Simulated assay, not measured.
Amino acid sequence: MKKTLIALAVLGAAAGVAHAQSNVTIYGIVDTGFIKKSGHDVEMGENVNNRLGFRGVEDLGSGMKATFELEQRFKLNNGENNGGKGWTKSGDRDFAGLANVGLKGDNWGSVKLGRVNELTTETIRKFDPFYQYGVGSMMYGSQRVRGIDNTIRYDSPNWSGFKFGATYSLGDNMDSDSRSSHGNTLKKAGADNDGYGIMLGYDNGPLSLVGNWSRLADSKKSSVWNLGAAYRFGPAKVELLYQQTIDKGYALGDESAWKKVYTAANDIRENQWLLGLEWKLGPGRLNASAQWMEVQANGADISDKDIYKYAIGYTYDLSKRTAIYGNVAYTDYDDKEVAAVYGDTDDGTYGVQVGITHKF
């Protein structure tokens, strides 16, 4: 009996030590509401992306830690998987948000391997008052993507507000004799390139700045670069960003939507500006933005097309974790042709959205 008690005591002590050295955090967001868009019936949908995640850290000693992230994305209104953009069907992904393992040091930063957030999207979205969510979101460029696969990502420590990041992503079976049929299709199209990304940012006091350049894997060497600036004063924050996308016809191994509209074009160039405002008003935040995008279809006799978008919304905080929101947006396209590139059928479209968000 005494031996059993001693053994249990030892196991309990060991479990306590292990618990002290490592921990796992479970987190998530649940969000849904009603959305009405031009040409669509009222539907249920999200504003903030729904997710369930696990984040772990183990202390290895001498300032070194092991890390991992596993995050699933889903649609709350029907429980379906929400895998996002990419040629792999969303239903094939068990962890469509994040899936990586890595090391972190107190003095040198962190390295992650696996599926990670793309630096360009992760950092520039912070200069959109709507954080690239919902009907009020900044217009998505044709190379915009949330997560990237088969990637190594480095993030530097914070040096008095300055940060640096870089990514390298493998293409789909580059130059392999055992390449998949999808890889063969990409190779014949000259679209099976590796991917790269770099980021330089500054956030200290009232001023925030960021600059990014990226090339997605399997994109025919298409590229995106952007600059963002924000200034906080009192209850308000003003944001300005510029983004240029050069799309040569593929994004993550998928043919881009513009190829079905501008069939004679070799590539398109998107020049995009956004002016945003966030204002703490009462127990919530007022968000507003005005955007302009110029679309140039190169290699075809097509004049430049302009797109304007205006959005306003309010988020009311019921608590630190729960909020209700309402957003309204209007998009003005030059014509129905350019509207079709971005998934709309009319040259003037609106969106209205109301819902509730809970974070845990």
Rank of each mutant, 00 (worst) to 15 (best):
E118Y: 14
E122G: 01
E122T: 11
T123Y: 06
I124R: 01
D128Y: 03
P129S: 01
F130R: 05
Q132L: 09
G136V: 07
G136F: 07
S137Q: 15
M139S: 14
S142L: 10
S142M: 09
S142A: 08
R146I: 14
R146Q: 14
G147N: 15
I148P: 04
T151G: 04
T151H: 06
P157E: 02
G161H: 03
F162T: 00
K163P: 03
K163R: 11
F164S: 00
F164P: 08
A166V: 05
T167Q: 02
T167V: 06
S169L: 02
M174S: 09
M174R: 11
D177V: 07
D177A: 09
D177E: 02
S178K: 07
R179M: 12
R179S: 12
G183Q: 13
G183S: 14
N184F: 14
T185G: 15
L186K: 15
K187Q: 15
G195Q: 00
G197T: 08
M199H: 12
G201V: 08
D203N: 13
L207Q: 07
S208C: 10
V210G: 02
V210N: 10
G211T: 06
G211R: 02
S214H: 05
S214R: 04
L216E: 05
A217R: 06
D218T: 04
K220A: 09
K221F: 06
W225I: 01
A229L: 14
A229T: 13
Y231V: 15
R232M: 09
F233W: 15
F233E: 13
K237P: 05
V238T: 12
E239W: 14
L241R: 00
Q244W: 04
Y250A: 11
L252G: 02
E255T: 14
S256F: 03
S256N: 11
